[in-house]
Design a protein around this nucleic acid. Structure first.
Lengths: 250, 250
DNA sequence: TTTTTCAACTGGTCAGACCAGTTTTGTTTA
DNA sequence: TAAACAAAACTGGTCTGACCAGTTGAAAAA
């Protein structure tokens, strides 16, 4: 990262410039909601400014509700987007309407596809390293609970490799939405032996396409994957009548 | 004002306590919007804390939009305390980051495309009526301001015809995001005679594809449209150096 | 193996110095 | 006298370096 020293054309105050840099850090998809950002001392060194300035910048971002800071731990990107109780209209939308769950999947199909394509295009070797790591961790996992987590980590790594901050945040909020309802569903899904192989195959395809830098193929695979998951949920719902849903959990 | 010593029930951080004291100062006492509040050194002495804490508190209040600070003059109570919408964290993040604007368009390209496709598939005759109405209203409009509004109405009608609540919500929030930063740009765009015909043509294609129930064509047209808008903004930005705002400090 | 302890993080706070704008003031000048 | 100007005397902006206070994780002790 470049130093801020070089007289910013506009008359930005150092603290403001630092705040923007940190925002950029978040938006660059390097940091998703909930992620921890570098320590004050790290930022200080990285941006070539005093710690006081870093702290003022952080305070400003705190005031804006972008980050939150915990003593002894660090500063974290707020995931207010994924926070249900925040009178979020989306949450209101979700609760009550069963159909909305599939609306979410419909949108996710597009966005996950786009994320995969962008990851294949723009992903750095570093990104690919994390994606691969997440992919491998997922393959060997048996425990459904952990599997769900790793599945999430895998997709998360892909989205972040897209280097599109907007995408990161939207998908993050969508996942937050679905989390309650589908955590159980995904559990069900991977729990059933019938689905596991198919899921693995999909993940394999997605991973391969991305790391081989084949955007179109990656997009297609990612979309197919989401569609498959959604369809499976539908099928299960039909079969079992009552798949666990958020509205029922609450 | 009394010293902060008397530990406020919860373990507030000094800076937070200071921020509250200043807020109290504004609310309790005389400080009306536009009024100047005591200098940092005064506050420091008055509250019995270091100047660093005072500054961090002020920065936080700045972030919250409660006060604004001018070098060499002082800090002043903002007169725009009645603007709640802009406090959304995501919004804060996006304002001022040009690159993110294109991230938004990248995502919008996908989603508008999907919306158009779904509208063509599932739209009711009622939906088509509204879409058509918005489309016609747009054609004859000359005034750039109104044109922008109607343009928005047209796209809005399409999204709603998709009958996907999640899509509606996401696109709505994305537009809200862009609105503030690019309101002027959109204005510029439709203002320039060079763009108007192309835009009209796009709208025509989208409208036609949807009402003729041609999902694939509708999607393609909508995507092309968004891509065109984004690209035009890019071009303009390059040409005019600073169409939107000056924030590129790195 | 489990527990304890402690060193090495993390943020929180302070003091005092100096730089950079703005306003006031007091003198100089027309 | 009134305008012009230069120097204090404000204001906020930034840096340095120190120390306090929670958290964490790994080594040491049980």
């Amino acid at each position: 990262m470049s130093s801020l020293s070089g007289a910013p054309s506009t008359s930005l105050t150092t603290a403001q410039a630092v705040a923007r840099s940190i925002e950029a850090l978040i938006l660059d998809a390097a940091l998703a909601p909930g992620d921890k950002l570098p320590s004050e001392r790290q930022l200080m060194a990285r941006l070539g400014v005093s710690r006081a300035m870093v702290r003022e910048a952080l305070k400003s971002l705190q005031g804006q509700g972008v980050i939150e800071t915990r003593h002894g731990q660090g500063s974290f990107v707020c995931d207010t987007l994924a926070k249900p109780e925040d009178n979020e209209p989306l949450m209101q939308l979700f609760l009550g309407h069963n159909r909305t769950l599939y609306d979410v999947y419909e949108v996710r199909e597009q966005l996950e596809g786009q994320a995969a394509a962008l990851a294949a295009e723009r992903g750095s070797e570093q990104d690919f390293y994390w994606i691969t790591k997440a992919f491998n961790a997922m393959k060997d996992e048996k425990d459904p609970q952990r599997l769900a987590e790793r599945d999430h980590a895998f997709h998360q790594a892909i989205v972040e490799a897209s280097h599109n901050g907007v995408l990161v945040h939207i998908l993050s909020s969508l996942k937050g939405l679905v989390q309650h309802s589908v955590a159980a569903s995904v559990y069900n899904l991977s729990h059933r032996d019938a689905f596991k192989p198919q899921m693995d195959k999909h993940h394999q395809q997605i991973w391969q396409a991305i790391t081989r830098r084949q955007p179109v193929k990656a997009q297609r695979a990612a979309r197919a994957h989401v569609r498959y998951v959604a369809q499976s949920l539908r099928d299960i719902e039909v079969q079992e009548q009552s798949i666990i849903r958020a509205s029922e959990l609450l």
